[in-house]
Structures are given as structure tokens and as C-alpha cells.
Design a protein around this nucleic acid. Sequence first.
DNA 1: TGTACATCAGTGAACGCGCGTTCACTGATGTAC
DNA 2: TGTACATCAGTGAACGCGCGTTCACTGATGTAC
Lengths: 230, 230
Amino acid sequence: MDKNSAHPGQAALARKAAAPRKRGRPIADSPDLRDSMLDAALACFSRKGIAATSLRDIAAEASVTPALLHYYFGDKEQLQGQVIAQKILPVFTALREPLVEAGDDVAALIAGFVSGIGRIVAEHPWLPALWVREVLCEGGAMRDLLFDRLGPQLPQMMAARFAEAQAKGRINPDLDPRLLMVSLVGLTLFPAAGAPIWRRLFNAEDLDFDAVRLHTLALLDRGLELDREP
Amino acid sequence: MDKNSAHPGQAALARKAAAPRKRGRPIADSPDLRDSMLDAALACFSRKGIAATSLRDIAAEASVTPALLHYYFGDKEQLQGQVIAQKILPVFTALREPLVEAGDDVAALIAGFVSGIGRIVAEHPWLPALWVREVLCEGGAMRDLLFDRLGPQLPQMMAARFAEAQAKGRINPDLDPRLLMVSLVGLTLFPAAGAPIWRRLFNAEDLDFDAVRLHTLALLDRGLELDREP
DNA sequence: TGTACATCAGTGAACGCGCGTTCACTGATGTAC
DNA sequence: TGTACATCAGTGAACGCGCGTTCACTGATGTAC
């Protein structure tokens, strides 16, 4: 194995793209097999956490040998990178696009964020647990991703719009625009991640995604509405 | 090592309590050393997570040998149990007591919870990260603790008081009492756990514990107060 | 068309490493005389 | 008081195990003739 090709799989792919080979069995370049290994890795990662998942776990999930994983992806770190880039990142970026269209309509922005998180979680039930372990946990494997790729796009854009709306007197002046972004995540992604806990704690199987959405929007809209004359 | 004494340290302690020994060096029974090992374990647990912490890590942190940890605590599982019972549980139970006194004053209950979480986090900065990893994460080592010990006492008591107040028309009728408990945690413990993230994301070193508390109480009290005439 | 072979996708078995745990042993210390 | 010794707190070195990774090898397959 030479210095410029990290592993046989990559070397074979590079060869197919460039060199005019003459004889012999062609490279597999089987996207189905590669994709099924990525899916197996994602399943293991969201079930046990990235750090706690062994290559033997992933290999068993995908019904291949650990050596094949090394053959296709090089090492554990590069496999992680491929799962994140090809399977996880697209889900997060899909959240952003509908929100950009909200423009300076803060009510639409917030309702869109709450509904968007609900939609994403319904479509990808593995996401909240993975987000807790790999982004929220210190030392999580996806934390840098938040700062480098997701952070500047979504949270900072939304916080900036909140600040703008507040300057125009359209939002409760006692709130902090940055903390409002934190509160929004705490009222949407956190309850989704903690759902297995509070459903069991409160015997709350009756509360579906829509009930959570309505509760959250009511709290954001008017707050507790506590009776002030006892 | 016989069946009834899990390890030498426990055997020695049991012997001191019961048997009338005649000659020889007495058992150490040194609570300082034992406590310093528990503190070292807690430091490692909150820094790296319980599962990712090795006995060699804890031994190095406490400046002892791994064999001594086994001598005092038996095995890794029992050491975990001692750290949780003697170092972590007391911190959570200290949150409960002031809240019981609030009686049926829901405003005091909520303000007390928000302030109580702030106080606990200020006194024990290691707690939010540990809570995320060991309670919120699936497979976390302290999850059973929540269901068995903390859950019935704090969250269920508070949810019951919210339901009661709502029945009397003292709380926004569009909220769900159980989800309100979830929202409260999402607006307090979650922002504390995510503080390293949002402080760096928003360059928000200026937002201290008090600023977070005031923002949270303002959001809970009145919500966003969005201007409805555009 | 049929055959020999060059090529590489994929594998079985083993590597060194750090893990939790074990145990024969050391030496400090209180007791008995 | 001084001494011999019984006792146990604490240790160094090694155990088996699963980890990520490696590599010589196999055999299926397309190509050249």
C-alpha cells in the first residue's frame, strides 16, 4: 500500500477513473454494497454511539467481514466521516431550506422551525439520539461539524433575525435573541431526544408529534398565562 | 475470596464491624482515601463518560494503582454504584426539598425550579454534562436511577401540580401538564448542558447564569409576545 | 467460439494493544508478652 | 520498655479478552488471442 492511496478500495476507484487498464477482473465499484455498509454503520452509531461501535458490530449488521470495511473505507475514522457526510449532514441541511424562505416573518420562521424539527424526527427517528450523543455530549464526534458547517448557517441566521425583529419591537424585549435560539432547540430537539424517557415516566403514549407541536407553540406564543390574583 | 464478601476491602470492613480481632495490623478503613478515589472517579466520569472511563484513568487521577480500586470497591460496576449513590444522587435530591415547600403556588414552584437548577449547576459544574451522557443518552448508566428514584419524586410531583393548577384555570389551558415538565427541563438543564456550545457559537461569554434565568422566566411568563398586526 | 491468464474484490487468521481483573507477595503496624 | 510476630493495606506483574488493523491468499471474472 503506497502513501497516496489510503487503502485498496480507494486505490481501485482511483485507478478506474484514470488508468487505461488492459486485462483482468475490473474493480467492483458496487455502490449498493458500499451504501448498505454505510446504512449498517448509521444504525449501529445511533443505537450505541459512534465511539462504542466496533467495526465488528458494523460488519455483523451489514453481513460482511471487518476486513471488507477496511477494504472499502480505510479505517474507522474515514468510515465515520463518510457516514456523517453522506447520511447525516443531508438531513440537517434539509431543515434549513424551508426556513430561508420565511424572510423577516419571525412567526413563520419559528413555526417553521418547530414543524421542521417535528417532520425530520418523524422521518428519521434515529436522529435525536445521535444528536444528543455526538453533538451535545462533550467530546462528541459531530461537534466540530456544528461549529464548521451547521452553526453559521442555521442558528446564527435565526438568532440574527430574532435580534432584528426585537429591534423593531416585534418580540418580547426581555428575551435574548441568542438564548431564544437555545430555548427553541430546548423546546423541540431536546423533547424529541428525551421522548423515550418522558413517555415512560408519565405513561404518555397518548402524546403524539402533533400534541407536542401544539403544546410547544402555545407555550412560545403566550407562555404560562399564570393567574396573578390569587 | 468467599461468596459473601465481594472483595478484601469489604471483607475487612465487615470484620472490623463484627469480629473481635486479637493481634495484627488493623484494617485501614480510611474514609479520606476512599473518598478521594470516589472524587477521582466522578471527575473522570463527567469528563469522558462512565463507559469510556477505564479503571486505569481513575487510578491515575487518584494517584493509586488499579489494583487498589479493586481492593476497595470490588469491580467497576460497584465503583460506579458508589459514585452515583454517594456523590451524584445527593445533588439531585437537594433540588427537591425547597420545591416541596412551594405547596400549590405554581408560580413559586416554577421560579424555584428554574433558580434551583441554576444554583445546582453553579455549585456543581460537572453535573449537566454527566446528566446528558448518563440519563438522556440511551443506554446511559444513570437512566434507571431516574425511573426508580428521581422520577416519581420530582417530575411526577410537579406535573401533578401543573395539572391541578390547570384544572383550576390558573395555567394556559392549551399546555399539557406533563409536556410542561419536559419543557421546563428543556429550558433549564438543557441550556446548561449546551452552554459550551452556544457560548462558542454566539460568542456569548457575556451571558451569565442570571441573564439565562431572566430570559427563561420572561419566556415562560409571557412567551414571544409576537406583534400580530404586520 | 474456446481457452489461458491477468487482475482485483473479498477473506481468514493473526498482529499488538489496552481493557478489567486476579493473585502471590511485601512491608508497615498494632498486639502480646 | 523492648522484642517477636500476626495481620492486613496495598502492589507489581500477569491473565484472558475484544479491539482496530494487517496481509498473504483465494477464486470469480473480463480480456486477449
